[in-house]
């Protein structure tokens, strides 16, 4: 059953549909928030709030305007922005451009190492790459979540790759 069909069922009062959507996206939303906020507790709080908001506002989802996942990640993004505004301490690491320069040798073929490097990329460039490469959104969907143009998204992804390359000193 597709997400959109589940949403339809949820709007008809099916509680199991909400549970199913929660099960499908709980990990994705948590991971997205974690990679944005770089804090496990904050990410969990955001993820929970996102599902509460989804529960309350599901009737606002309009299938003609895009996929359900894009809508949900859009809520997650705005929730993360709200939390970040309150607590700027979470973002010291991610927003530090200097942090991307690293002295030790790393291997970009190692997924764990690459993810660690990714967390050092400033948020502005990290988010598009996280959405596209790790959460399967397209450039257009990412652009609609971030409220920027598709070209801008692509440029940010490219810049993020350049930063990662710089991190590995290739």
């Amino acid at each position: 059953m597709t997400d959109e069909q589940l949403v339809e069922q949820m709007n008809e009062g099916n509680r199991e549909a909400f549970r199913e959507l929660y099960e499908r996206y709980k990990k994705g939303v948590y991971n997205f928030a974690l990679r944005f906020l770089l804090d496990k507790n904050a990410a969990e709080d955001v993820a929970h709030d996102v599902f509460l908001l989804m529960h309350d506002n599901i009737y606002q989802f309009d299938v003609s305007r895009g996929k359900f996942s894009t809508w949900l990640y859009s809520i997650t993004y705005h929730e993360c922005c709200r939390i970040r505004k309150r607590n700027k301490k979470f973002f010291l690491l991610g927003d530090n451009e200097e942090g991307i320069k690293n002295e030790s040798n790393h291997n970009y073929n190692d997924a764990i190492d690459l993810e660690r490097a990714l967390l050092r990329v400033p948020e502005k460039y990290r988010l598009p790459i996280v959405m596209i490469k790790l959460h399967g959104l397209t450039s257009a969907e990412c652009a609609s979540v971030l409220g920027i143009s598709e070209t801008n998204v692509k440029q940010r992804v490219f810049r993020a790759f350049k930063m990662l390359k710089e991190y590995y000193k290739i």
Partner: peptide, 29 residues
């Protein structure tokens, strides 16, 4: 090198959700 990194992205797995995450959510709800 960017192409190689691009391939590595496929191997990045999602973080596991913390213990008690579901219970806390249903309680919150």
């Amino acid at each position: 090198p960017m192409l190689a990194m691009n391939k590595t992205f496929r191997n990045i797995t999602q973080h596991e959700i913390p213990n008690g995450y579901d219970e806390r959510f249903w309680q919150k709800l």
